[in-house]
Design a protein around this nucleic acid. Structure first.
Length: 463
RNA sequence: GCCCCGUUCGUCUAGCCAGGCCUAGGACACAAGGUUUUCAUCCUUGCGACAGGGGUUCGAAUCCCCUACGGGGUGCCA
């Protein structure tokens, strides 16, 4: 068995798309699973659209996702250069081989690849013209996902444009040959054109790689038809990155689009994915992207994170919202986030969920306020609670609970008569983390001050 | 137009290759309850699909054919 070599060959234009990322990810997974080599090759032939900044974005987003490469930009390798713009001589020498074999010819300033077979002309309804066609032998594409796909090419095609640039089909095959690529895993949009590639391999007298054409990621039908494009919501990897999604969750979710482990497990670490991955388990049909499921997978990863690792993306989100900075007490931050971790399912929602831990002018939920203000005993209960809590010397959850319990017993009430009021007083909302630890972490000073502030507001409302 | 690929709950999917174990399983979403405080956690329950038609067979989601629908290709784009 020869060493497996796969490649990911993006063009570094703008941002990295979820479909592009998935191609990278499946190639990477396959290489890591089989002990093969993952090559990164940059298709930068379109000089105007390819900038250095775009390339750096691409590399950094790949790394963020957890994808590294064995050969390619910044790491080198024995099959370089890894930029198509630097491989002109290689393309020339392969073109020469084709010419010598009589398989290439010039026409209208461009170079065409010559198919073999009987020639005839026919009106082509798509071209709206008489065109020359060739009765070729059908070509069989041996596809790991789809089985044997038979197709025939019937028209000679351009391999070098009249401006001198070699075409995609040509450079793609030449590079794959020159780089010893054994398996080509790519999107289904390339399947029909694969017959061109097979014809090229035949002309060079070289065996084709194994192919695997993966299903497309389709857009939400509400947004239109067809495959997902860069403009669709949720389509860009850097979007998840800037919203503090966990890279391993994004990786996990994308892997689930078109692939399944065949049992009921859905949440995987990257190492588990490498372990479980098999090309044969790829789905044939297109998959539709679902943002809610993405969020769910993300939450599952968030919950499993040890607090130390949770802290970093969580503080990043809070920092962006201006709630914390370098002066924030780290043990306070840690404690506050510790009781939020299991409750909140997106880092981008964390600032709104936990603002009251970090500033005093947190927003007030009108509905929760209206509900509590309707209670006739609200003012009295708040007063009682404030008086009871104020003298506590050793401020902690169980002390608070004991005091409130005593108070409730004394007033012949349940302790929960005080809970919603206290929660609202200190946080401005009706929901959140468990109340007692929350009070402990906020500290006596904040709690008492906020209770008094609420009393004042109640006084004005009720008078 | 022609060619290629596909079609299981609203969505991601298991099952299909090796037909019976499928009154089709899981997850997301949604709905209703519950967790003696909480619209954001958690638990329980519910809702919900083999695209349609023929055929083969004792028996078909599974095999074959047709139709419909979806996707892709058909470019001196990649």
């Amino acid at each position: 068995m020869t060493q497996i070599r796969v490649r990911f060959a993006p063009s570094p234009t703008g941002s990295i798309h979820i479909g592009t990322a998935r191609t990278a990810l499946f190639n990477w997974l396959f290489a890591r699973k089989t002990g093969g080599t993952f090559v990164l090759r940059i298709e930068d032939t379109d000089k105007q659209r390819n900038t250095q900044a775009a390339l750096e974005d691409l590399l950094s987003n790949l790394r963020w996702l957890g994808i590294d490469w064995d050969e390619g930009p910044e790491v080198g390798g024995d099959y370089g250069p890894y930029f198509q713009s630097q491989r002109g001589e290689i393309y020339q020498s392969y073109l020469q081989k084709l010419r010598e074999a009589g398989r290439a010819y010039e026409k209208d300033g461009a170079t065409y690849f010559k198919l073999q077979g009987e020639r005839y002309t026919e009106y082509d309804d798509y071209q709206k013209a008489e065109v020359e066609k060739v009765r070729t032998e059908p070509v069989v594409i041996d596809d790991i996902i789809r089985g044997q796909v038979t197709r025939r090419e019937e028209r000679d095609f351009v391999i070098v444009r009249s401006n001198g640039d070699p075409s995609f089909h040509f450079v793609n095959v030449v590079d794959d040959i020159a780089m010893g690529i054994t398996h080509v895993l790519r999107g289904e949009d390339h399947l029909s054109n694969t017959s061109k590639h097979v014809e090229l391999y035949k002309a060079f007298g070289i065996a084709t790689p194994r192919y695997a054409h993966m299903p497309m990621i389709l857009k939400d039908p509400a947004l239109g038809k067809g495959k997902m494009s860069k403009r669709d919501r949720g389509a860009l990897i850097e979007d998840y990155r800037s919203r503090d999604f966990l890279p391993e969750a994004v990786f996990n979710f994308i892997a689930l689009l078109g692939w399944s482990p065949k049992d009921d497990q859905e949440v995987f670490s990257i190492a588990e994915l490498v372990e479980r991955f098999d090309l044969k388990d790829l789905q044939k049909a297109g998959a539709r992207f679902d943002e809610k499921k993405m969020a769910h997978i993300n939450f599952e990863h968030m919950k499993r994170l040890p607090l130390d690792r949770y802290l970093e993306p969580a503080s990043s989100a809070l920092r962006k919202a201006g709630l914390v900075d370098d002066t924030t007490d780290s043990s306070y931050l840690r404690a506050a986030l510790g009781i939020c971790q299991q409750k909140i399912n997106r880092f981008e929602d964390l600032p709104a969920f936990s603002a009251y831990f970090f500033k005093d002018d947190y927003p007030i939920d009108e509905k929760a306020q209206a509900k509590l203000f309707k209670r006739a005993d609200a003012k009295q209960r708040i007063q009682e609670a404030t008086q009871a809590l104020q003298p506590i010397a050793d401020w902690n959850a169980s002390a608070i609970e004991a005091v409130l319990q005593d108070l409730a017993t004394q007033k012949e009430l349940k302790i929960f008569a005080y809970f919603p009021l206290l929660r609202f007083a200190v946080s401005g909302v009706g929901g959140g983390p468990d109340l007692l630890p929350m009070l402990e972490i906020l500290g006596k000073d904040r709690v008492v001050a906020r209770l008094k502030a609420l009393q004042d507001r109640l006084a004005t409302t009720h008078s």
